[in-house]
Design a protein around this nucleic acid. Structure first.
Length: 416
RNA sequence: CGGGGUAUAGUGUAACGGUAGCACGAGUCGUUUGGGACGAUUUAGUCUCGGUUCAAAUCCGAGUACCCCGACCA
């Protein structure tokens, strides 16, 4: 991608509005644009990051054995399904829309009301269980207060997965497996070390749930991390709890955190109203046991930035970025330009994602400042100096020192 | 939803009730080119509605939007 053709420009000045790092950086670097409170457009750079995250999640679920099959459910949903579970009136974040003839619909904030009757069509006997489906789709929630940029929005991409089981033991087994998958996803997204499995309230789904909380001051939750086993407890249920549920440790560290994922054991809460039953081995009809597992993609992207940045800009981790390489030509000298273009073409041929700063009306300082702000993992600089040495300068965004790499071997150096 | 704050050009900001100014950006021309370079020139603004006043960006009222705190958060 040529930077001269990039859809949105970077902004030098910090916004005057008090805000989170991720909001400020993502907006200034041209990743997102705000339409209104809690609603954002993902610009080319931001959209690419979102797709990276999406693919990491998808890859981890569609491993061998497959932990869930991908589907796409409707956003527009019938009122009746929501009345059946009492959430048409009971869920105040639900967006309701009127169609023709005053017919009413819900805009999906979550999909238990849709996936449960869907599953019913697939389940007849215990032989049909277990199975799970997931989707990556836009959710709508009329949050009373949107905040902190893309950390809390009213419209957001979410991966929601629903699992269906014949027995509690089977759900428990799958649930623990999914916890491992979640940790792999967060590790790959560069926030593994800052993310904690957190014992939390189950909301209206279940008594308890497991949250995945990433430590950051921009977060709106407070968690207590057990210093011994590193499991955490959300402040919302900490009242009266004196020791760790896991290791009985009593030494906790208090931290602010943002919830990047949440998983629930829903039991039969949704299978009962939708009459989701199966015929068991013993000939009896039983209710299906369900679990649900969510990750907010935009929020995850925001959390990555909260955890990975410095005062100059974003520092994307090595698996999440809009482009891997930021190629910068600092001179308009014809020979140097030709050399830079050659490197650009080589990178494209090698299928290495590259953003080429080919702008001729910008000074070197401006280009470097933009590169730091945008935060791609690898920076390559081409100049008279590097051209004379038949090399290219390479610098990692998370390192201070740049080094010269011979033209002949720079592809190898990048791949490493 | 309760409380607080803010609203001036694309962005960041100034202006006692009396000529809306500055910087950045953007356009044009030229000089520059390893950390947001320089000169010339052009461009563009008082959130909306109402009130007070000879006169309102400024005072008053209502509305709207955004931000922050709290409550809420499948």
């Amino acid at each position: 991608m040529l930077q001269s053709k990039l859809f949105l420009k970077t902004i030098k000045e910090k916004s005057s509005e008090a805000e989170s790092f991720s909001r400020d950086l993502l907006m200034r670097a041209g990743y997102v644009d705000q339409l209104m409170a809690g609603v954002y457009t993902f610009l080319p750079l931001g959209f690419k990051v979102l797709q990276k995250i999406e693919n990491i999640i998808r890859k981890n679920i569609e491993q061998d054995p497959v932990l869930g099959q991908e589907i796409l459910m409707p956003v527009l949903q019938p009122k009746e399904n929501w009345q059946k579970t009492g959430r048409w009136d009971g869920l105040d974040i639900l967006f309701k829309v009127k169609g023709g003839g005053d017919k009413e619909y819900a805009l999906g904030p979550t999909h238990e009301e849709i996936v449960s009757p869907l599953a019913q069509k697939n389940i007849l006997s215990y032989r049909d269980l277990p199975f799970s489906v997931f989707q990556i789709q836009t959710k709508f929630r009329d949050e009373l207060r949107a905040k902190s940029g893309i950390l809390r929005t009213r419209e957001f991409l979410m991966k929601d997965l629903y699992s269906f089981h014949a027995t509690q033991e089977d759900l428990d087994k799958y649930y623990e497996k999914m916890i491992k998958v979640y940790f792999n996803i967060f590790k790959e997204c560069g926030i593994g070390r800052m993310t904690y499995r957190t014992y939390a309230s189950g909301g209206s789904f279940s008594k308890y749930s497991d949250e995945f909380q990433t430590i950051t001051d921009a977060g709106e939750d407070t968690i207590y991390i057990c210093k011994k086993c590193k499991l955490a407890i959300n402040k919302e249920i900490k009242e009266g709890i004196k020791e760790c549920q896991n290791c009985k440790g009593a030494d906790f560290e208090e931290k602010k955190a943002v919830e990047v994922g949440n998983i629930f054991k829903m039991g039969t809460k949704y299978s009962v109203p939708f009459d989701l039953k199966f015929r068991d081995r013993d000939g009896l009809e039983k209710s299906v046991i369900m679990g649900c597992y969510g990750i907010g993609l935009g929020r995850l992207m925001g959390a990555i930035v909260e955890v990975n940045h410095d005062d100059k800009g974003i520092i994307w981790p090595k698996s999440v970025f809009p482009f891997l390489v930021h190629l910068i030509c600092v001179e308009n000298d014809k020979k140097v330009k030709t050399a830079a273009e050659k490197i650009y073409k080589t990178l494209l041929k090698e299928n290495i994602e590259v953003l080429f700063d080919d702008r001729q009306d910008k000074t070197a300082g401006e280009k470097f400042a933009d590169a730091d702000l945008i935060g791609l993992p690898i920076r390559l600089v081409v100049s008279k100096k590097t051209e004379a040495a038949k090399s290219v300068e390479m610098k990692m965004r998370n390192e201070a020192q740049a080094k010269l790499v011979p033209i002949k071997s720079f592809i190898k150096a990048i791949k490493k």
